[in-house]
Amino acid sequence: MTGNWNRWGPEDERGAPNLVTGAMVAAAAGLVQTGRVLSLGQLLDPGMPVSEGRTELSHYMERDGGDYAIGGRVMGRSRFSDDVVVMGMHTGTHIDALVHVWYDEELYNGHPQSSVRSRGASRCGIDKLGPIVARGVLLDVAAHRGVDALAVEGGAIGPGELQACAESQGVALGAGDVVLVRTGWLGACGDDGERFFGGEPGIDVDAARWLAERDVAVVGCDNYAVETIVPGVTAGFPVHEVLLRDCGVPLIESVVLDELAASGRHEFLFVVSPLPLRGGTASPVAPLAIL
C-alpha cells in the first residue's frame, strides 16, 4: 500500500498535513467558544520514564543564583540563568516525522532509505513538517467503553469502534482533521514506566487504514506508540508503517487527553508546531486544544 505517494508530487516530504487548507484553518478557528486553552503535553522532567534503549532526559544549569553568591560577574546590574537539556526526540509528548518508520528500503513517497544517515535525515525529517493548525477531534474510546482506561488485552481499537465512538459523540471525521484517540492509558499508568512501556491498548492496522481513507492530517493517542502492542504477539510497528510510510500521516504520541475529555468537548481548534530540527526523526511538542 502506498496510499498517498505522489499525491502532492514526487518530491513531497510533508504528507497528509498538506490536506489542511487556509479555509480549513479559518473554519477551525470558528470552533473557539470560550477561549480556554489546554496544553496536551507532558511535563518534562529528568525522572520521567523513557522506553528501553532511549536516552533519559538530563537537565542541568549552566548559570544560576549560586554563581552570583560566590562572586560571579554581574553585567551592569543584570544577572541571568542558563540551562541545558539533553533528551531523545521521542521523549514525552512528541510528534513523529515521516522518516521515523519505513520498510522495503523506501520511506514515505518512495524516498530512499539511503537518505537517512548518521547526521540525520535528508528526506522526510521533522524540519519538513512545519506547524499544524486544524480542526481537532477527540475520540474518547475509554469513555465509549465505559471504563477509565483500556487494558492491554482486548485493547485493540478497530475501525468499527472508532466509527461508533464518533457517532456517539456527535462528530464526523473530515479531511484535514487531527484525530486524537483516548484510551486512558497515559493517565492510568504514565508514571509507571515498566507498565506504560510494557504493552498498550491502541488502534489496530484496520483502524489506521480507515483513518487514512478519511484523509485525516494527523493521528495522536495517549499511549507511547498510538497502536495496540501486546507483548509476545505484536511484531514490529504495523500502524506506523501504514500511517507514516504508506500514507504520510504524522503521529503524536503520549498526548495528555484526560483534561480535554473532562471538558466534554470533542471538536476544537488544534495547534502544534514541532521544532524545526534539520534531519530530526521527531520533535517534543506541547500541543494545544483551544476550546
Results as ranks from 00 to 15, higher is better:
V20I: 14
E161K: 02
G155N: 11
R63W: 03
E253M: 08
C189L: 04
D67I: 02
A142I: 02
N223E: 08
R119V: 03
E200H: 06
A217S: 10
R278I: 14
G22K: 07
A282W: 15
T55R: 14
L31C: 06
L57D: 05
A289C: 04
G65F: 01
G88W: 04
M87Y: 13
V216R: 09
S122E: 14
G136S: 00
N18C: 00
A16I: 02
F268C: 11
V101A: 13
E241Y: 08
L260S: 10
G88S: 13
G155D: 13
G176I: 07
G170Q: 08
D45R: 04
G76W: 01
A23C: 00
R117A: 04
R36D: 07
L269P: 10
D206Y: 00
V74K: 14
I126T: 10
H266W: 14
V179N: 10
H240V: 00
A286G: 14
V50S: 15
D104G: 03
L173E: 00
L139T: 02
N4A: 13
M75N: 10
V99N: 15
T183R: 05
G30Y: 14
H100R: 13
V226P: 04
A27G: 13
L38H: 12
T2C: 10
D104A: 09
N223V: 02
T34K: 07
G174C: 07
A175L: 08
